[in-house]
Design a binder for these strands. Structure first.
Length: 577
DNA sequence: CTAGGGTTAG
């Protein structure tokens, strides 16, 4: 490759293949004859993004005759900007091993990497070096420190650095403002906001989303939004995000429609809203409208399918994402949704493929991803592997406990499920409805009626309303134990409309115990709710047969045959038109 | 020469 051609390439954003060519060029040829400025440009403009980016940057540094402190600083910033926080910090340390004193540029970039990558120890180390190298009067370094402590939630130290600053600018103030909001202190944030000598659009946006997120106070958020001297895209997005978070989707949509311009963030926020209220169609509609689909929009749509029980569509879109020539690879978030889809399908073959894929790409297993895998292994029967992963978690949270408790329930490990629940309560983690689904499933699997009933009433003691899923498990448990009347009474007491999950459970129990009385009631409801599902007719027919009512059974089987025929002719009519 | 702050996905 000739150098002038390289330069023209760099004027545009590079495709993956072009970047790979340059990468190969960099590796094969020594860069000694290249202008340092050109090398920096390569670093700046290449969009070749992969796990090897760290080695790539290192190689470029290695090939420079004598990389100066500037080049090192630039490399640190490059990695920090591309989300490779650990690597950025690593390079910052490497530079000092070579004997070069870091520039304030490198210091602030490395601090940013520590703040984003939540690396407290690294941040503290750099803080010490800020004093060692005499950068304590540098506004950039100081502000980066304020930001670091704010992001770590350590407001005491953030304020200490902030008050020691001789000069403060908007960014310093905004970092403090953000810190207060992040630690949930709306009052103090408002005080800082009023006290600020200069406010820019970022300060206003932070305060608006603070009212929306921390205060759950959309009225104040809207007032502030209207008072803003200048609004940008992020201001609108903050309002939409606030409405989505508090479940007011219509208001979110009206602001979305009223926006002068929209970007991917606006679309993704709105899609998340539709996903939460189960409107997959509308989310897909917005996704289709996106002209430049980035990784985040794919992640949002795949997550939407996964969360709304459409695992096949999730995997299909994942496949399309791999085929689309995105300049990025799927990340941990993509795979967490994909794993969830695999686990819903209960098919370990997809799961194993994804696990290998994670290893191949070198994606770091964080707690979210591990929890998704725990759910997958547990649902596919590898409960011991699930336990192994559970032990490897850095922090065991509500979701992780709930996933494993349900896994134990499905796999008949009732005692382990109960033990885990106790452990969770002792760790001061408040269970939610999902946790109780797992625990009830465990009792149901073991046929422990009394324990199940106790568990069911403890749901309300925790202040929750059981969902129809919980009722369904209880009906199944009572019904299988032959307590059909109790099961029926439980359904009658339901505060919501019973679904086929509940009536179906009763019908199944009646089949087990050959009970016509409740079987007929349950079947009637199932017929009304799902007239096309022939399984319910057959169940009732079997109940009739078991008590010798052959005529009724034959009558029902006839209905089933007719329904099957109607289905087939319906299909052929659609095809022929 | 650059650099520090806000909005999105599980």
């Amino acid at each position: 490759m000739v150098i002038p051609k390289l330069t023209t390439l760099l004027n545009n954003s590079l495709s993956v293949n072009q970047a790979k060519q340059i990468h190969a060029h960099v590796v094969i040829n020594t860069l000694n004859h290249l202008e340092p400025l050109l090398v920096r440009q390569i670093l700046l403009s290449t969009s070749y993004y992969s796990r090897s980016i760290f080695q790539y940057v290192q190689k470029i540094l290695h090939h420079l005759v004598s990389p100066d402190a500037f080049s090192w600083g630039f490399a640190v910033r490059y990695l920090s900007q591309h989300g490779q926080f650990k690597e950025a910090f690593c390079l910052y340390i490497q530079q000092q091993r070579v004997g070069l004193c870091p520039t304030t540029f490198a210091v602030s970039s490395a601090l940013k990497a520590c703040a984003r990558g939540v690396c407290k120890i690294g941040g503290l180390l750099i803080h010490a070096q800020v004093y060692k190298y005499g950068f304590c009067c540098c506004v950039y370094a100081q502000t980066a420190l304020v930001d670091l402590y704010s992001k770590l939630g350590d407001m005491e130290n953030a304020l200490k650095v902030f008050h020691d600053m001789q000069q403060k600018n908007v960014v310093s103030w905004n970092s403090i403002l953000y810190g207060h909001l992040k630690s949930g202190n709306l009052v103090e944030a408002r005080r800082v906001f009023d006290e600020m000598p200069i406010k820019d659009v970022i300060s206003w946006n932070a305060m608006v989303s603070g009212y929306a997120k921390v205060g759950n106070d959309m009225d104040h958020a809207c007032t502030l939004f209207q008072e803003m001297p200048l609004k940008n895209l992020a201001s609108w997005n903050a309002i939409i995000s606030g409405y989505v978070d508090c479940g007011r989707f219509e208001s979110a949509r009206s602001y979305f429609d009223a926006m002068p311009q929209r970007n991917n963030v606006s679309y993704i926020t709105m899609m998340a809203g539709y996903s939460k209220c189960g409107d997959v169609e509308s989310a897909r509609g917005l996704f289709n409208q996106l002209s430049e689909k980035d990784i985040l929009s794919y992640n949002a749509m795949i997550a939407c399918y996964s969360q709304n029980s459409q695992p096949k569509e999730a995997l299909l879109l994942f496949n399309q994402m791999l085929e689309a020539d995105l300049n990025v690879q799927p990340d941990g978030m993509t795979l967490a949704s994909v794993i969830s889809a695999c686990s819903q399908l209960g098919d370990m073959r997809f799961g194993s493929f994804v696990k290998n894929y994670i290893d191949k790409l070198g994606i770091e297993m964080d707690d979210h991803l591990t929890t998704a895998l725990i759910d997958l292994y547990a649902k596919c029967g590898s409960i011991y592997k699930a336990f192994e992963l559970f032990r490897s978690l850095r922090k065991k949270d509500l979701v992780a406990y709930s996933a494993l408790i349900l896994g134990c329930g499905i796999n008949g490990k009732t005692l382990d499920a109960v033990k885990l629940f106790e452990k969770m309560v002792n760790a001061n983690i408040r269970p939610n409805l999902v946790t109780f689904t797992g625990l009830l499933t465990a009792y149901n699997h073991a046929g422990l009626v009394e324990e199940g009933c106790k568990c069911f009433s403890s749901i309300m003691e925790y202040g929750f309303l059981p969902s129809s899923d919980h009722y369904g498990i209880m009906v199944d448990l009572l019904g299988r134990a032959g307590r059909l009347e109790e099961a029926y009474n439980l359904i009658k007491d339901m505060p919501m409309q019973p679904d086929t999950g509940v009536w179906g459970a009763l019908l199944l129990a009646c089949r087990v115990h050959n009970n016509v009385e409740f079987g007929e009631i349950a079947a009637q409801h199932c017929f009304e709710l799902e007239p096309d599902t022939t399984g319910y007719y057959l169940l009732l027919a079997n109940i009739y047969s078991s008590v010798g009512r052959w005529e009724d059974a034959r009558e029902l089987r006839k209905v089933t045959e007719q329904k099957k025929l109607a289905k087939i002719s319906g299909c052929s009519w659609i095809k022929s038109s």
